[in-house]
């Protein structure tokens, strides 16, 4: 029975994260420092230590996921990563004592929140998109799709040999100006507004009424092929889109987490440099 990373081990890591958060909130409410709550009280230092350790451990996932051995499964690591990453919101926010300003310290906090937010999208993506992917491609790999599309291309060009030049141009266009993906926008939207196949299909369909009768069967054959190609292209583009959605958030999550790492080092250093 498949257990997703969110459910892993009966929500073990969710429970731990909630426990940590509740404990931290309770101590924060009870602890009344003589001055205002801030990162420099003894509890502030404790939370800061916990938060920094959490951040380093969370980033270690990047190392662990590239390794083939480990005491705990990668899915367990991911589950812990997600839930403890969420608990970090509580730990870090209470560490600030709700004191914010235009400085490196708040920058580190902001970067952390951006990382967590992008991670939340990641959780959503990983929970939802894989089934969409299966549903779309039904087991056919992208490689296979590309091969099939190229094959239809060839058939199309061969079948269209007798067509007049202006129609032939469209068929050539469908072949030469057809691509899957190509840019970030095309990948993420799953559509290609400049697709030659679409253009060719529409034009030939509209022109089909006006061809001489002896070319009729040829045009119909070409249209049928173009139609099949369109379907395959749609599948391929949706597949590429889903994979892109599963990847795009990482372009924020990872670079920002390294920015956070740098900011965190700066934060700790500066706080003790000017103690």
């Amino acid at each position: 029975m498949h257990d997703g990373f969110l459910v892993h081990e009966r929500f073990r890591h969710l429970k731990r994260a909630v426990l940590l958060s509740v404990a931290v909130i309770a101590v924060y409410a009870y602890h009344q420092p003589l001055d205002e709550p801030n990162g420099g009280t003894w509890f502030g230092y404790t939370l800061g230590g916990i938060g920094a350790a959490l951040i380093l451990w969370l980033m270690w996932l990047g190392v662990r996921k590239r390794s083939y051995k480990g005491a705990f499964s990668l899915r367990g690591w991911l589950s812990a990563h997600v839930y403890l990453g969420l608990a970090l919101i509580v730990v870090a926010t209470l560490h600030t004592g709700f004191q914010f300003g235009w400085n490196l310290h708040t920058l580190a906090y902001t970067l952390m929140m951006l990382v967590i937010t992008s991670g939340l999208f990641g959780v959503y993506a990983y929970a939802r998109y894989p089934s969409l992917m299966t549903h779309n491609s039904e087991g056919v790999s992208m490689d296979e799709l590309v091969t099939r599309i190229a094959e239809i291309d060839r058939e199309c060009l061969a079948a269209a040999q007798p067509l007049p030049d202006d129609m032939m141009r469209h068929v050539v266009d469908a072949s030469e100006n057809c691509r899957i993906g190509g840019s970030v926008r095309r990948l993420l939207s799953g559509t290609d507004p400049n697709c030659g196949t679409e253009r060719a299909f529409t034009t030939l369909r509209d022109a089909a009424a006006n061809v001489p009768s002896d070319l009729g069967p040829t045009v119909r054959a070409v249209l049928q092929l173009l139609g099949r190609k369109r379907v395959l292209l749609r599948t391929a583009r949706t597949d590429a889109r889903v994979k892109a959605m599963l990847d795009i958030w990482l372009f924020f999550h990872i670079p920002l987490s390294f920015a956070l790492l740098a900011a965190l080092v700066g934060h700790v250093l500066s706080v003790f440099f000017y103690w």
Binding site: C178, L187, I248, F251, F258, A259, A262
Partner: peptide, 25 residues
């Protein structure tokens, strides 16, 4: 002609990470 992954269309995550971290540092 096709670019099937974001990695082919965008600056790599690693490079981006270095850039950000360096600017901040």
């Amino acid at each position: 002609r096709s670019r099937l992954t974001l990695a082919e269309c965008l600056i790599s995550k690693r490079k981006l990470a270095w850039v950000f971290a360096t600017i901040i540092a």
